[in-house]
Each structure stands twice: as C-alpha cells, then as structure tokens.
Design a protein around this nucleic acid. Structure first.
Lengths: 111, 111
DNA sequence: ACAATATATATCAAACTGGTTATGTATGTC
DNA sequence: GACATACATAACCAGTTTGATATATATTGT
C-alpha cells in the first residue's frame, strides 16, 4: 500500500494537484474540475496515489471529501535534494539570504 | 528525446547513481559494479535515461565513459519543492543551522 | 588480424501507468 | 422510496518501463 513519494511526484497532474492544495484544502470534485480534460475516475485515482504516498490527507465532511497537503513526505524529498544543494552555489546563497531575512523578521513564535 | 526530470528521479536505482556521482565522476562500468543485481545493459539504460533528462554529463576517455553530475536540472526540482518549504518549519530551522555553520566555516572559495 | 575490454543498442516478456467506461456506495433531497 | 450528488472502485486497454539475453561497436593490447 505504501507508495514511493518520488514516483507519486513523477506525474505532472499530481504535482499540479499538490500545487492547488498548497494554498488551501479542496474537495475532490473541485480538484477534478481543475482538470477538465481528465475524467472524474481519473482524478480519483491520482488522488489515491497521492494518499498512498502519504502526500495528502482526506477529511470527510457530509458528501464531500476534502483533501489537504501533508508536507512531511515532501520534506523527505527536500532532504534528498539537500545533499546536492551545494552544487548550485548561487541559488544556495539566495536561499541563505531568504533565511536571513526570515530570521530578522521573526517575531518569536511566528508561523 | 528530452526526458522529464521528475520521472527520471522516480527510480531508486537512478537516484543511487546520482548519489554515487555526487562525490566524484565515475566510469559506467564502475557504476554497474555498484549494482550487482542489475545487468550491464540494465545500468546502461538507466544511464541513458539520466542523460536524456540532462542530469548527467558523459566524458569519453580512452575505453571509458565517465559520468558526472549536472546539477542544473536538480535545481529545477529544488525550485519546485521550494514552494512548499514553508510547510515544515522545523526542518527549515535545521537547514538554517546548517547554512550558518557553512557560513562560519567558509574559507573563501571552499566548494 | 585477433582477442579482450568497455559500453551501447536490439529485442522481447512481464509489470506498471494512465486513461476510459461502467458500476458501486454513501449521503442528501423531494 | 425514488432520484440526484459526490466520490471511489472494477474492469479493460494502449503505451511505457524495466529487466534479461543476445548482439553490435569502439578501443586497446598482442
């Protein structure tokens, strides 16, 4: 049942779904309507893959199933890429700058 | 011919190959020997996928083909995940600590 | 020229993917 | 109870992937 996170992310539609969920939770039907070229069962199966990979969480509410992002597994992917981050130093420096800025504006307990 | 980076990363063997290349360039045969359960043509095709995804570079030297990491495409993946980085604040803080340590030990020009 | 080494390509079967249509199940509405 | 809504699962199919074995190509050594 457990799915590999990397292969779950291999499909562009599933990545778009995660993008949609990054802003807010959404009902399955709402997600489906975002992909008019894919049938309802098609989206349903993409959602299943994301579920099995632990990338999303589902909440049942009345007739709706609301999907939301679970970031833990994405953190694993990020940890894998982190090993390579030293290879593109420029981007690393800009991230560093971002973190510095974040640190300066941190009002203790923020976020 | 161009391959999707995410699907190239979907295979665990290919991720391991990149891990091996992250330390130093290696000949195809050397990479193959790191996976005794996979045949030589099997590895050769994994290398082809990595090539087509732009994740590795090949250099011919005598009888050997030396593979090395090309980080640009990994940076693209990193950029995608960056959008989600705010979601796991704890890990972000540890990365921050790492960057701080890196900054302190930076002896100008060091990798 | 011949043999050995290093690596890629060809071909094929088994497994996996991603899409479809048809159907099932649960929850509301009249 | 009959019907609609919201979603999942089943069955099926075409295309792709991954592994294997066999073969080709290029380079080096004798």
């Amino acid at each position: 049942m457990p799915r590999d996170v990397f292969s779950a992310l291999a499909d562009p539609t599933r990545r778009q779904v995660l993008d949609l969920l990054s802003r807010q939770e959404r009902a399955a039907g709402e997600l489906g309507r975002a992909f008019p070229h894919i049938s309802q069962p098609g989206i349903s199966r993409h959602l299943r893959v994301l579920r099995e990979a632990g990338l999303v969480h589902v909440r049942q509410d009345r007739r709706n199933r609301f999907y939301s992002l679970r970031s833990e597994r994405l953190a694993e992917v990020d940890a894998w890429i982190a090993k390579y981050r030293g290879f593109w130093a420029a981007e690393l420096d800009s991230l560093e700058a971002y973190l510095d800025a974040r640190k300066r504006s941190a009002t203790r307990g923020g976020r």
